[in-house]
Computed example of a mutant assay.
Amino acid sequence: MSQSIALLKRQIGGATDLQSVVRTMKAMAASNITQYENSVRALFDYSRTVELGLGVCIRAAKAAGVSSAALPNTGSDKAAAIVFGTDQGLVGQFNTIIADEALQTLADLPGKPILWAVGERVHSRLNDADADSVGRFNVPNTVRAIAPLVGQILIEYEARTRQNPGTQLYLFHNRPTTGSLYEPVSQRLLPLDNAWRRQRSEIAWPTKSPPEVLGNDIQTMRKLTGEYLFVSLFRACAESLASENASRLDAMQRADKNIDELLSTLNSTYHRQRQSSIDEELFDVVSGFEALGN
């Protein structure tokens, strides 16, 4: 009986320590979700400014009679894709869902795409794909680390597609949703086709004073296109990280609940066996006293 009680005490202590770790991870995940969601909201105004500038450049180029062929990123049969995943565990089907979404979409494209994976786990899933290559980037662990990562991705993309400047660029990531933890999202960033240009050119300027493009319209548009890519990749990375932490938070909440139930069972068993042990000791004392009296 004493061995059983000692074992229960060790199990209760271990479960309590584990619950402390789980709750710490819950707090960290919740804090991370907040910082990544705040970064996405903070990016909105800058993204809007870039799109307004692109709309002005497109209208100016059209007014000057510039043909679509002269505009940047007019298209190519070559395709490339960036897939945002995670380096860490405790995220359920996070990497599987986004990898399957990417592979299913890219399977319909001609030729072998160039793939870049952000995260070791999603990289391993994409390695089996029929791709030209599968590069890998490390997942950032803070908001400040997102911008350097985006810069590395853009440099790598330009280096690999220099011979095909109109390479199609696809983006895959998980995005937080209100009804569930997250959902897979796919987007074609490049080329900037006629439909994309028409949508941006129809964005109304927010003031009554019409803007002017100083200098070369095409050069300005190329610069703004680079900013558009930066904003799109930054947002995708931040949303992916928020989704990852939401998935981890959900896993930790389930673990916390399971540990609570386990501790309740262990404590109940411990108190029952402890009471039984006390009753046995009292019975032995009474029996001994009665034996001495006889």
Rank of each mutant, 00 (worst) to 15 (best):
T96Y: 05
G179Q: 14
R200G: 00
N95W: 07
R188D: 02
V150D: 04
E202I: 05
Y182H: 14
A147W: 06
G179F: 00
S209T: 15
G166E: 08
L214Q: 13
G85E: 06
L181E: 06
N174T: 08
E158Q: 13
G111Q: 06
L106W: 07
D193M: 04
A102G: 02
L103S: 01
N73L: 10
N174W: 14
Q187T: 11
E120F: 06
S124K: 11
P191F: 04
A147T: 10
I155G: 00
L169H: 05
L214V: 10
I114P: 00
S133H: 10
S76T: 08
N138M: 09
T105D: 03
Q152A: 11
G135T: 09
P72G: 12
T178Y: 08
S76E: 04
E120K: 15
P72D: 10
Q187M: 08
L126A: 01
Q104P: 00
Q104M: 02
D128W: 06
I97L: 11
Q187S: 09
L106F: 08
R198A: 14
K208A: 14
T178C: 00
P176G: 07
N138L: 11
G151A: 11
F172K: 02
G135Y: 13
P148G: 07
A107C: 02
R136A: 06
W196G: 00
N138I: 05
G135N: 13
T177C: 13
D132Q: 12
A147L: 04
Q152L: 13
D132A: 15
N138C: 10
G179P: 00
L90I: 12
D87Q: 09
R162F: 15
R200E: 13
A81K: 09
Q88M: 13
N138D: 15
L214P: 00
A129S: 05
A99F: 02
A79Y: 13
G119R: 01
T178N: 14
I97Q: 12
F84A: 05
Y182T: 09
I203W: 11
H173N: 07
T207M: 05
L154E: 10
R125H: 12
T177A: 15
L71Q: 07
L181Q: 08
R160A: 15
T207Y: 01
T177H: 08
R200I: 10
V118E: 06
Q152I: 00
I146H: 04
T207N: 03
G89S: 11
A70G: 07
G75Q: 05
T161W: 03
P148V: 08
G179K: 14
Q163R: 14
E183G: 02
L71I: 04
P211W: 03
P191K: 02
S133D: 02
E158L: 11
P110A: 06
E212G: 04
Q168E: 11
A117W: 01
L90H: 14
G179A: 13
Q88L: 13
Y157N: 02
R121T: 07
Q88D: 13
Q88R: 07
A117F: 02
L154K: 14
P211H: 09
N127A: 15
D108F: 12
L192I: 12
L90C: 10
R125N: 12
N141W: 10
R162K: 14
N174Y: 10
Q88N: 09
V143L: 01
S133T: 09
R125L: 15
E120W: 03
A117E: 01
D128E: 09
T178H: 12
N164T: 14
K78H: 11
T142R: 04
R136E: 15
P210R: 09
F137M: 06
